[in-house]
Amino acid sequence: MIETLVQDVEPDATSAFEYMVVNLARFIRPNEVTFSGVNSTFPMLACLLAKRAYDFPFTYVNVAGGVDPTPDSVPVSSSDPLLTTGTASIFDNEDFYDLSCRGGMDLSFLGAAQIDGKGRTNNSVIGSWTHPKVRLPGGGGAAVMLPTANRCVTWRTEHSKRTLVNELDFVTADGGMHGLVTPLAVFELIEGALALKSYNPATSLETVRERTGFGFSSQGAGPTPPPTRRELQGLHSLDPDGSIAADNEVSVK
């Protein structure tokens, strides 16, 4: 019964917001420990969505210290203490970094301002580090988590040559992003290089190539399978009035 539901495809056009959250959620695997951090609305939604839409068990640890929380509503801040609602333990900031360092973090979602074709990230500066054109927030845990977590996945709401670059202004973190989700496409790291896995049916392979600063393999890539009804229902139950989608505007344009 459940399998039928999962395969039941929603025929309507998918918004870019839905595309991103759902495709981030699809990186989550059964029985693993998955983490979402600060400044991470999309991954937070993806983890909460996966709990509602998928039947397999997994452990969701978040930066607020929550372990498998069951919040009634979704906070504006992805580090909000609301994300400890229903938790039976507090797994604090030292704990989840230490877990990653000793090899116990299966999947971590890490943000990035720039990503290169090797899956390295820059969260530090645009321009030179010593004389920055733009000082960015910094990588948070990235320089330690990207090399130590088993898999990391990142996202960018802007898919362009200034975000997906051939050369980073600064390497904040190395270690190879396992996955990248944008409004246009899903990439996966294959033999040390990000390769196109699939693209948004609302765009084309040519557009993805045109708007990506690094070269990539597109072998076997086709349109991304649309969200299932359960994925969409899960997301809508998290954002019933669409206010989170409105606050996180994203477009294929």
């Binding site: 360092c101 000793r102 990588g139 845990g141 320089a143 330690v144 090399p147 973190a173 190395d174």
Partner: peptide
């Protein structure tokens, strides 16, 4: 990185001149 700052603080906590931290490569 958050964890390197924690490592620096831990060095003080433990009474050591430095603290090793994992990751960082690259």
């Amino acid at each position: 990185s958050c964890a390197t700052l924690t490592a620096g603080l831990r060095a003080s906590v433990f009474g050591n001149p430095f603290q090793l931290c994992a990751g960082i490569d690259g």
